[in-house]
Amino acid sequence: MNALTIIFYIMAVLMVVFSIMAVTSRKLLRAAIYLLFVLIGVAVFYLAVDYMFLAAVQVVVYMGGILVLIIFSILLTSHLGERLQVVKPTTMLFAAVLSLVSAGVVISVINGFTFITSTFEGDKLTVAHIGQQLLSYDQFGYVLPFEVISILLLAAMIAAIAIAKYKHQGKS
């Protein structure tokens, strides 16, 4: 049993525990912090398979970006003593059935999927390779998705500015 296996099992158990805590906690900000731990666990898995770039992107995007946004909105909308209501039993049952079904679909798809072995040659995947592949227009290049996502983000940004700039009639 090597160090990586031990780290994998520790992180796997922690992630499962924190995922359950994130959905069962009745304090909103605590749930967000448990989610933070789950996301850190994913980053550790990427590090464990030596995929530094994806680990850093995971931290930047999910922890530094999305989670900070979630915490900001919690800070603006809720206060310290507030607790979430316990949902009705029928809703709980429906949610449980739905999540079990979706988990079943995901597991069956992953089991039936044949993973293609990477054709990458060279001893280490560097960030330079990823950058070139991201902007390459040869086979397996990603320039089209890259540009499409850029346009999507630009549209979202302009929309956000338009909403923020919008003034109600009569209120100056």
Binding site: M52, V57, V59, V60, M63, G64, V68
Partner: peptide, 19 residues
Amino acid sequence: LYISAVSSIGVIGILIAGW
């Protein structure tokens, strides 16, 4: 990229400390 990634976690600590 690593340094800017890990230093972006610190702000979460500041936010929850204040809240």
